[in-house]
């Protein structure tokens, strides 16, 4: 067993993201948060090492995006001036390539984002890796509290900013989402200097994906409130009801108790008051 406070080996899986408005290639938000988590952990556990890993085709656009991750490692000395690129043709399945690489490299902690911003974006990759490697997986991670004796103590994000504490035996895969701390700035200099170490990765074409119809997302129809009223009067009332979003109600010249009552009713309706 490793002595306490010894550094650990981490692998951060990163992907090429896409800006939600303009669609420009960038660091994927969740993956960048994952790297942020790794960098923070590296600061607390001296001697830790972080490996950046990406599987996919190499193009000018994706390279610029991937260099964004290298730009986060401005504090040199973490061995983080290179990113391992498992080069694959467009449309390949990244899972076998990554699984092969990880089972050879044997990191103790694999950090990924929850979902990719490109392609299928199903969020299956960490699960597939966990199943193949036989490692435990924790999702929705907010923080790593400590790593001791091959056991990591983690905080999992619950809704409303709540947290749950978990212990997981290493090696493990952890997925971060938007609850993890925001990624630090990517600096231009280290990004430009960093190296992409390209090695050919397993090239298995994802045939199934190729058979699907993919189109830009349609706007989902807004669910109509279906009125199953017993009487014609109720149906009429529902149909004639004023649409929401009109100007609000203004209570003027009421006592503070009445005002509080109105607010209380609204809070109660919205269900934000915890009992």
């Amino acid at each position: 067993m490793r002595p306490e406070q010894q550094g650990i080996e981490m692998a951060v899986l990163v992907s090429v993201g896409r800006h939600p408005i303009t669609g420009r290639a960038r660091r994927a938000d969740q993956d960048a948060r994952g790297l942020e988590l790794a960098l923070c952990l590296e600061g607390r556990l001296p001697g830790s090492r972080i490996g950046l890993l990406h599987a996919g085709p190499r193009s000018e656009e994706s390279e610029a995006a991937l260099r964004g991750y290298l730009g986060m490692a401005a504090d040199a000395g973490t061995g983080l001036n290179t990113l391992t690129l498992l080069e694959q043709p467009e449309g390949s399945d990244a899972i076998p390539a990554l699984a092969d690489h990880l089972s050879a490299a044997m990191p103790q902690l694999v950090i990924t984002g929850t979902r990719a911003e490109l392609g299928e974006g199903s969020g299956l990759l960490p699960y597939a890796l966990a199943e193949r490697l036989g490692w435990p997986l924790v999702n929705g991670l907010a923080a790593v509290e400590k790593v001791e004796n091959g056991v990591a103590t983690l905080l999992q994000a619950l809704p409303r900013g709540q947290r749950r504490r978990l212990q997981v035996r290493l090696p493990a895969i952890i997925c971060v989402d938007a609850a993890a701390p925001a990624a630090r700035q990517s600096a231009f200099g280290p990004a430009r200097r960093g190296e992409l170490e390209a090695t050919p990765g397993a090239a298995e074409l994802d045939h199934e994906l190729a058979g699907w119809q993919v189109a830009p997302a349609r706007k989902r129809p807004k669910r109509l409130k279906i009125i199953r009223a017993a009487s014609a009067r109720d149906r009429f009332k529902a149909a004639a009801a004023k649409a929401e979003g009109g100007s609000g109600q203004v209570l003027e010249g009421v006592s503070s108790e009445q005002g509080a009552e109105a607010i209380f009713t609204l809070l109660h309706e919205e269900g934000v008051l915890r009992s």
Partner: peptide, 12 residues
């Protein structure tokens, strides 16, 4: 199904 961070519709 939605894919690519809500940007794509995948029919399968």
């Amino acid at each position: 199904a939605r894919g690519a961070a809500e940007r794509l519709d995948i029919r399968r």
